[in-house]
Amino acid sequence: MRWNRLKADLAIIGAEIRKTAKIWFAYKILMFFWAIFPLIWVIPYLFQGKALVGGMSSAPFAQLTGTENYMAFVLIGAMVSTYIFSGLWGVGNSLREETYWGTLEYIIASPTSLLVVLIGKTLAEFLYATVMVIFQATLATFFFGIDITFGKIFPLMMIIVLLVIGFYGFAIAFAGFTLLIKEVHGWVHTLEWVFFLFSPIRYPVEVNAITKLVSAFVPLTYALVAIRAIILLNKSVINLWQILLILGVMDIILIAGGYILFNRLEYRTKKAGTMSQY
């Protein structure tokens, strides 16, 4: 019985991944946009760096981050943030999109849990973001000289998986929130700037006491520190065990919290009878 249910759930997850992939391929220009533009958005930071320090390295920057190469710093931040934005828009906003397409009621009426459908969407988003990041990393390697060797790929993937497990837990809770309050574009934008300001995507948060303190509660901070340590400082993953441990603990809290919150919000929306409202 349990085995049959698991098989059915896996089939739903597979179907959800196939459906999401079909939608992506229907909008090829969007795939191109998301593969290229996260790198284009950091170009102003590269020119700003050149204007402020007169070259491609900065000693004060090295005191804060361990590396003088500010270009590599912001490029890595841009690549890793692809997972965050795919999580916020692709997972967090996914149920809202189903209401937009008019298909949410069909999904709810099917004999499956909404959470299983969301897991399918989450895995699809992870695959999509990974393809985008591989493309960006290839560009960064060839055009910007970022050194990502094959030996670093496994530890990097390990950290990224640890990052996205927790983050997608949060995104699933956020998806539940969209069932309740419907229009969340503004909220997603606000969360975007929270991540830009309180995690080292674009700059080292250690530069300011407030950003340093707040960023300690954001998993992305630890993931970026570890990823940059591997790529830019050639550190071994074993030396980063403390960061991995913190990420692991945050994952457990975020996944458990995300699951509980989603179920509660789904229940509340169903009780209020507003599930199909747009």
């Binding site: 204007a51 402020l52 320090v53 007169g54 000693a59 005191q63 700037w193 700059y203 530069v207 300011n208």
Partner: peptide, 27 residues
């Protein structure tokens, strides 16, 4: 929003030069 969006640019600049004054920018 715009207030928060400008902060990463400013903090990034401070991190690069170690303060708010840049000799290179002045030149």
């Amino acid at each position: 929003d715009p207030l928060v969006y400008v902060l990463p640019y400013l903090l990034y600049g401070i991190a690069l030069v170690g303060g708010r004054t840049s000799e290179s920018l002045e030149k």
